[in-house]
Design a binder for these strands. Structure first.
Length: 709
RNA sequence: GGCGCGGUAGCUCAGCUGGUCAGAGCGUGCGAUUCAUAAUCGCAAGGUCGGGAGUUCAAGCCUCCCCCGCGCUACCA
């Protein structure tokens, strides 16, 4: 451990098939940017890399749906996301992309090295779905079918979006190819697997104790609890080999003769994007990328959202270690999720706001970037999920930025102008009482950033501003000046207040860079530069002035025009428009009954139907199945026999409530064991768009055991 | 069902290895002040720290059981 010479900071690579919303920003990009800006302001050697993740079937799917090429998709979103980040002041040193040739070369090199070392990969031949018309294997996302869990008819091969279950393509009932619509056939194909399981031992020690190769690597206690917890939970469950290749034509080709037509699975190539991005940056700036990835006196930190924890704390570190030579992250400060006005962000529902939409909607709002950054920092989901609310956005902006910070600066500049023609009066800040408090608060702010506690850090910042307000109020120079314009007390007071303003202008830079510039303008000082925070700490420590006596400050102007402003309702109108939009979404949700109807399945022949033997029956007994939340064990009377059926309806019906329920039963479904109970048939249920269930039942008085035709 | 993380004043949250730990900000009420963006400053009320049991001289802080939220996971209509 010890003081690192270099810092390599990464933010999760955005997937280039869509825009990012405020939750992404608050989760992985803003905290990283604060941390990086802080390190730079300490004069540290730091590289901040990110870029677009541009491979995988979801992108080719999206392209097909939109009727464009995958390249057009990734170009569009790469540019959009890159530009949006820039406008929000996210200060990447490079925003690279995984479609770059350098990346393919890097990823292939990484694979080859691991391959040639031996022992890390294994080959497996498995049966995968193949579209005969298109003559190609189908990625999971290219297969849709009926979800075996919930009956949703358009579940993907890897996941059902209706019930959220994780699936494998072969589980789908009636699978069909997205390409041709035909039923795919199973064909054997060879793939390479990364033997993740063999790395479980050292991973546990590394995560639990921070020890790597028998040496201290990082402070395990400094990792967030939910990060460590989720990793250990995974390790407890046991790791499995993971496929790292796919039959797909969109990605980095597997660099082996025998793997023609196969690409690296997107999860394998994406994190290598951090490496290729660093390489590109180094090339552009005459640096050596290996200093950042391989030198023991460098430190790697990944900023991500909680959906990426296992990947960045287990899978990628295992890859790096297996490859050898690479550094492992010293921390992965994953954030939880940000909700939006009480609900999850949902593009399809129109709930939430994307980054570029915000910039668009607020284009006439002064300080729009920092107003957003501030609201997200104050409410960052550091330890648990949090909730973005427009009302809070307004309060944070008006009460803290405008009233507390902005107004303090304004008071000080105005008084200085009024009393001393904008000339900083002489005083004893450097040797006085107040420097101690400012020093303490500034130190605590720095410590909080270093511990990734950005909410704490911004609070310390506000305390400095509050301290200034309290001090100014207590001295009340305006009262003294009335009688004694030459008062030493007044000079002392404004001298000190200006020192505090100087501190604020530097300390705010990592959080609100645009505001920092404006404060510097107010103070007539140059923009904050690399190393300024370090020299500020030094000055506070050794008792030096921040702003020298005699320095002429700038003209006062209102730093944060308030949203709740009697004279100008324009800013409030922007907020109201956003709230109205949400109200509309809610109203539409209420008004519109379920109107999403699943498309009809392909036509079948009468013979297909005739194969089904559906019978009338009555539920005699019902009891929950142990260790299964969704299952009920039923005893059904079919007249000619009674049989046991396991049905996944426990979340919808209480056992005692369905005894005596008349049902239709698919009676010739092959028996299947579920949680150790043999289920003989399937209860027919009707499901609406929300997945709500109701029994399909024969007319009152109809006898049991007769068929449906 | 299993696992992880949470559940502290009306709201948002701090509370490190158990003993000034019952706190901060916002909101509310009262007061002071006018340099300033109807800003600022001070004071006050407010909670049986999700529920129950236990360990201890002492428990938001430890143990057990239960309830709720979020997430991961599981042979699931």
């Amino acid at each position: 451990m010890g003081e690192p010479k270099r810092h390599l900071i990464t933010s999760a690579l955005p997937y280039a098939n869509g825009a990012l919303h405020l939750g992404h920003l608050a989760g992985a990009y803003l905290p990283a940017d604060i941390y990086v800006r802080y390190l730079r302001s300490l004069g540290k050697d730091v590289v901040f890399v990110c870029g677009s993740d541009e491979h995988g079937a979801a992108i080719t799917m999206r392209a097909k749906k939109d009727g464009v090429t995958p390249q057009e998709i990734i170009d569009k979103y790469h540019e959009l996301n890159k530009d949006t980040f820039r406008r929000l002041g996210i200060s990447f040193d490079i925003y690279h992309r995984t479609s770059a040739p350098l990346h393919a070369e890097t990823a292939q090199g990484f694979f080859k090295e691991m391959y040639e070392q031996g022992g890390e990969f294994e080959e497996r031949i498995t049966e995968q779905y193949f579209d005969e018309e298109y003559q190609q294997f189908l990625a999971d996302r290219y297969i849709v079918g009926t979800c075996p869990r919930c009956g949703h008819e358009d579940a993907y091969g890897d996941q059902c979006e209706s019930c959220g279950s994780t699936l494998s393509p072969t589980e789908l009932i009636k699978p069909r190819s997205v390409l041709s619509g035909n039923t795919p056939v199973l064909k054997p194909t060879k793939h390479w697997y990364f033997k993740l399981d063999k790395h479980a031992g050292w991973l546990r020690t590394w995560i639990e104790e921070g020890i790597l190769d028998g040496k201290p690597h990082h402070d395990a206690k400094a990792w967030k609890k939910h990060v460590t917890g989720q990793c250990l939970s995974w390790l407890d469950h046991g790791l499995l080999p993971r496929a790292i290749t796919r039959d797909l034509d969109w990605g980095v080709p597997v660099p082996l003769e025998e793997a023609k037509g196969k690409v690296l699975y997107v999860w394998f190539d994406a994190p290598i994007g951090y490496i290729s991005a660093t390489k590109q940056w180094a090339q552009d700036h005459g640096k050596n990328w290996e200093d950042y990835w391989k030198s023991p006196d460098s430190q790697l930190v990944h900023f991500i959202g909680k959906d990426n924890i296992v990947f960045h704390c287990i899978v990628f570190p295992a890859m790096l270690k297996a490859h050898g030579d690479y550094l492992l992250p010293v921390n992965v400060p994953a954030n939880q999720f940000l909700n939006f006005e009480g609900q999850k962000f949902s593009k399809s529902k129109g709930w939430g706001i994307e980054q570029h939409e915000y910039l668009e909607a607020f284009q006439d709002f002064p300080n729009k970037e920092d107003a957003l950054r501030y609201a997200l920092i104050r409410n960052m989901p550091e330890q648990r999920d949090s909730d973005f609310k427009w009302d809070e956005f307004v309060d944070f902006h008006d009460k803290e930025l405008a009233d507390n910070l902005g107004n303090f600066l304004n008071r000080v500049i105005v008084l200085t102008q009024k009393y001393y023609e904008s000339r900083t009066p002489a005083g004893h800040f450097a040797s006085g009482l107040h420097i101690a408090t400012i020093r303490r608060l500034t130190g605590e702010l720095a410590a909080a950033i270093e511990a990734f506690n950005f909410r704490d850090a911004i609070q310390k910042f506000l305390e400095i501003s509050t301290y200034g307000n309290v001090y100014l109020q207590e001295v009340s120079p305006w009262a003294i000046w009335k009688d004694d314009p030459d008062s030493a007390i007044v000079k002392e007071c404004l001298h000190t207040c200006l020192q505090i303003a100087g501190v604020l202008s530097i300390a705010i830079e990592p959080f609100l860079p645009f505001t920092s510039k404006k404060i510097r303008t107010l103070l007539n000082l140059p923009e904050v530069q690399a190393g300024d925070f370090a020299s500020l700490l030094e000055k506070l420590e050794t008792g030096q002035e921040i702003i020298p006596a005699g320095h002429i400050v700038g003209e006062p102007f209102v730093l944060f025009p308030k949203i709740n402003d009697r004279k100008d309702t324009g800013r409030l109108a922007l907020i109201e428009a956003q709230k109205a939009k949400l109200a509309e979404v809610l109203a539409a949700e209420q008004a519109e009954a379920p109107k999403e109807y699943a498309p009809l399945k392909p036509a079948i022949q009468y013979d297909d139907f005739a194969k089904l033997d559906i019978r009338t029956g009555t539920i005699l007994e019902a009891e929950p199945v142990p260790k299964a939340d969704r299952l009920l064990k039923l005893r059904v009377d079919l007249g000619f026999e009674k049989r046991t059926v396991v049905a996944g309806i426990a979340e919808h019906f209480k056992p005692e409530a369905i005894i005596g329920q008349r049902v239709l039963l698919l009676a010739n479904l092959a028996p299947r064991p579920l949680k150790g109970i043999e289920s003989n048939g399937m209860i027919l249920m009707a499901a609406d768009a929300d997945g709500k269930l109701c029994f399909v039942t024969p007319e009152e008085g109809w006898p049991n055991g007769f068929g449906v035709r």
